[in-house]
């Protein structure tokens, strides 16, 4: 999916279409002095437009960042999941299996974009549920485009194969170099994502995290691989230390407590 932020007018048809297709209830909200509402992604809000007013050299700009799962090529959430509840599909979507989840929420910490959310209404005991955009996998598997792409009136959201979208994005940048930052966000970030962005201002200003091109999963997989040996080794070391201390203290009288000293 290619999101051309230079075309977005913040109409939020995508945000509402997401709720409509996925049958997500509305949240009770307040106006907090901004158009952005609900305030953040949640178990019932999988896609959110964040309104941003940015002034540069006295010129006001009004930007609309569409925030939802990036469907990484190497998803950190999936690799952080202890029970394999999250997995990357061949078609692109990173999907989640309700029945496997144990509610550890490692995925939430692992995701560099802060996307997965926990359904606190269900809680840990009832049924732990992680919620996020599912790329409308049910629509895509039936030959339709995701609900957000279908609803967008301004042709901001383009759905298709990743390579073609990268080619299209690069063509747009070539054609109107003044209009775009010379880079497609998500082409390399975090090892590449299925959701790609074009923008007229630096992506960090728009609110997307600065990431290098190594997949976050490389790190998390490395960590996961050495977690058990590390834990075992650390345990052994601590045990050894404890034994050493006990050995050095042998024969010494027990230190009186302060109460006894008084």
């Amino acid at each position: 999916m290619l999101i051309d932020e230079t075309r977005c007018t913040g109409c939020r048809a995508c945000q509402v279409a997401c709720k409509q297709w996925n049958d997500l209830p509305a949240e009770t909200t307040r106006n907090r002095g901004t158009y952005t509402n609900p305030p953040a992604l949640s178990a019932n809000t999988w896609s959110l437009i964040e309104f941003k007013e940015i002034e540069t050299r006295g010129q006001i700009g009004f930007y609309f960042l569409r925030r939802a799962c990036m469907h990484c090529e190497h998803p950190a959430c999936a690799s952080a999941c202890l029970v394999g509840a999250l997995h990357k599909t061949a078609e692109g979507p990173v999907l989640y299996d309700d029945h496997k989840c144990i509610g550890c929420r490692y995925c939430m910490i692992a995701c560099p974009f802060g996307i997965p959310t926990f359904d606190w209404n269900k809680g840990l005991l009832d049924q732990p549920l992680i919620r996020k955009c599912v790329f409308c996998a049910d629509r895509v598997q039936n030959g339709l485009t995701p609900a957000c792409a279908k609803a967008c009136p301004s042709r901001v959201i383009l759905f298709g194969g990743r390579d073609e979208l990268i080619a299209e994005g690069e063509a747009r940048i070539r054609q109107s170099p003044g209009r775009y930052v010379n880079r497609i966000y998500g082409k390399a970030e975090a090892g590449g994502t299925s959701v790609l962005y074009l923008s007229s201002i630096p992506f960090e200003q728009l609110g997307l995290p600065r990431l290098d091109s190594a997949p976050v999963t490389v790190l998390s997989e490395w960590v996961m691989r050495y977690t058990l040996p590390f834990a075992a080794a650390w345990g052994a070391a601590l045990t050894g230390l404890a034994l050493l201390v006990r050995w050095r203290n042998r024969g010494k009288p027990k230190r009186p407590s302060s109460k006894e000293a008084a």
Partner: peptide, 28 residues
């Protein structure tokens, strides 16, 4: 509900100069 959720309340858009002059903070 979905539209009430994204624009829940009546608001007044005003510029920072006027807000400063009247002692109004965002969300007041």
């Amino acid at each position: 509900p979905w539209l009430a959720e994204i624009q829940p309340e009546l608001f007044v858009l005003l510029g920072p100069d006027l807000a400063r002059a009247r002692g109004i903070a965002n969300g007041d």
